[in-house]
Write a protein that binds this DNA or RNA. Structure first.
Length: 318
DNA sequence: AACTTTATCAACCGCAGGCGG
DNA sequence: CCCGCCTGCGGTTGATAAAGT
């Protein structure tokens, strides 16, 4: 016995919405607010299922929706967010005011995918199309598909030092090896991405739900003993071996800058991003050895001083 | 002008998680 | 703890428009 249908399909309209239906929905929500989608159609006098009403409102009728083409800045933001989050369209949409997950998903599939391909970048992995290391890890199509579901940066994030897993992080050697490969075979862009991933976690972008995706995806299968309960802790000291290994990452941009929002009030880098975007080389051409304020001791991230372990769940979405 | 192909995007569907009883 | 309801998400479909032949 299956679950009951969400609505009486025999008595519901499907397909494109009419102007009258839109008006009814708008006036009802204006009067009663959003929510209780299941009962809304009947109350509003609509022959639609609740899901359909919700979708219509969220994707089309909501007053705060931004209309018109995506800007170049939005394009780049979507690309960067996708490199961090994968196909988490709702999370990406949450970072783009006035845009919906459906809109961004469609835009990605129709425009950005091609844009990245034309740049020689695999839209699924955000790695160069001819990057041998990308295919090196994949022994079959199934793994490749899993990789598409899970951006490379997320794999890296699972083992970077800034994010520590609660209790034991018994990440298997294969996962560590994978990240090493990621770091050594990719460009400064990837370095930025990896750092941004850490910050994305701090922002609370990485939500619990992502654990589902890890468990479904390759990470969990490769590392069955990996505890994916996330907490956020201050960066480890430079002396620590792992930190030395990934020191290049730690010097990378803050999340805000990685999104192309340099000089923003939220920027925590506190240094010339251009000079550091190429892997920590300053304008004199000498390698910088100072870490950014974003990773230094006592760094104040979103008003939260480092010094104790944070639970990511306590962070509110910015 | 007629037809075919391609692009776009609104809408649908199934599934999973949260939550309350 | 279990069950069912509700909501939200992501993948997919299909209608329509635009471009090409």
């Amino acid at each position: 016995m299956g679950r009951s249908p969400c609505c009486e399909k025999a008595h519901t309209n499907k397909g494109a919405w009419t102007k009258e239906e839109d008006d009814r929905l708008i006036s009802y929500i204006r009067a009663h607010g959003e929510g209780c989608w299941r009962s809304l159609p009947k109350a509003a006098g609509l022959l639609r299922c609740g899901k359909s009403c919700r979708l219509r409102w969220i994707n089309y009728l909501r007053p705060d929706l931004k209309r018109g083409n995506f800007t170049e800045e939005e394009d780049e933001l979507i690309i960067k967010l996708h490199s961090l989050l994968g196909n988490k369209w709702s999370l990406i949409a949450g970072r783009l005011p006035g845009r919906t997950d459906n809109e961004i998903k469609n835009y990605w599939n129709t425009h950005i995918r091609r844009k990245l391909l034309s740049r020689g970048i695999d839209p699924a992995t955000h790695r160069p199309l001819n990057d041998s290391s990308a295919s090196h890890h994949h022994h079959n199509n199934q793994e490749q598909q899993q990789q598409q579901q899970q951006p490379s940066s997320l794999v890296a994030a699972a083992t970077t030092t800034t994010i520590s897993f609660a209790s034991s992080v018994s990440a298997s050697a294969s996962a560590v090896k994978q990240e090493q490969d990621t770091i050594t075979t990719t460009t400064a862009t990837t370095t930025t991405t990896t750092s941004a991933t850490c910050n994305a976690n701090m922002f609370g972008i990485m939500e619990k739900k992502n654990k589902k995706d890890y468990s479904k995806g390759s990470s969990m299968e490769r590392c069955p003993d990996l505890n994916l309960e996330l907490t956020i802790s201050p960066p480890r000291h430079l002396d620590e071996p792992d930190h030395q290994k990934y020191s290049g990452i730690e010097r990378a941009l803050c999340f805000v800058c990685s999104l192309g929002l340099q000089n923003s009030k939220d920027c925590r880098c506190g240094f010339d991003t251009n000079a550091n975007a190429n892997g920590g080389t300053n304008s004199n051409g000498t390698t910088t050895t100072t870490t950014t304020t974003a990773t230094g001791a006592g760094y104040d991230f979103l008003g939260l001083k480092t010094g104790s372990v944070w639970d990511y769940r306590s962070l509110e979405m910015k």
